[in-house]
């Protein structure tokens, strides 16, 4: 079972230090983000138990939070996750056809991952980029004003990055 590296522990301690003494549970959301980034992009039961032990809370307190918020992945996801907004303002600017295009291009439906483990498609609700629609979140950043050409370029970019990192 994995645990935080020294650098990750420094970040963990920085997060916990923001709250009053005895209120370290408040760091749970940021610590879960850190854990998800550190352990392969998702939260296994072991990871959640580990976070519980670090913060000194019951595992159930971690599970109930992890299952509530949409950004925590409770099963493995692809190396690159396309989180495409489908709410009203994006729909008005053609998000339905962007989602359909990605489905066709990658051969997966929302919630699925390509067989090579490279891409996951996820439909999400409003991410606050309505004026730059249609859009998706990819990692830490937004990709906006999407067109099918842009989607092609993003897929290409991800494949290149993956090849470079191997």
């Amino acid at each position: 079972m994995s645990s935080f590296s020294q650098a990750q522990m420094i970040e963990f301690n920085r997060l916990v230090a923001r709250y009053p003494e005895g209120k370290q549970k408040s760091a749970l959301l940021p610590v879960l983000h850190l854990a998800q980034e550190s352990f392969g992009g998702w939260l296994s039961a072991e990871t959640m138990d580990y976070v519980a032990s670090l913060l000194g809370v019951e595992p159930i307190e971690v599970y109930e939070v992890a299952t509530f918020y949409s950004m925590y992945n409770l099963k493995p996801v692809g190396k690159y996750m396309f989180e495409v907004c489908q709410t009203g303002p994006c729909m008005l600017r053609g998000s339905d056809s962007i989602i359909a295009y990605i489905e066709e291009k990658l051969g997966i439906k929302p919630g699925e991952t390509t067989l090579d483990g490279m891409f996951t498609l996820k439909t999400v609700e409003c991410l606050g980029a309505c004026g730059y629609a249609p859009m998706m979140q990819l990692g830490k950043h937004y990709r906006e004003h999407l067109t099918s050409e842009k989607v092609d370029a993003i897929i290409e970019e991800c494949r290149k990055n993956a090849a470079m990192n191997n």
């Binding site: 549970k25 408040s26 509530f68 949409s70 999400v124």
Partner: peptide
């Protein structure tokens, strides 16, 4: 001043849900 990241929940824009979330709970 500290910045705390939420984790994807519209409801946390409601101020008491936000406070719950800031305390490390469901919103």
């Amino acid at each position: 001043i500290y910045v705390q990241r939420g984790a994807g929940a519209y409801i946390c824009g409601e101020e008491t849900a936000l406070i719950e979330s800031l305390e490390g709970k469901r919103g």
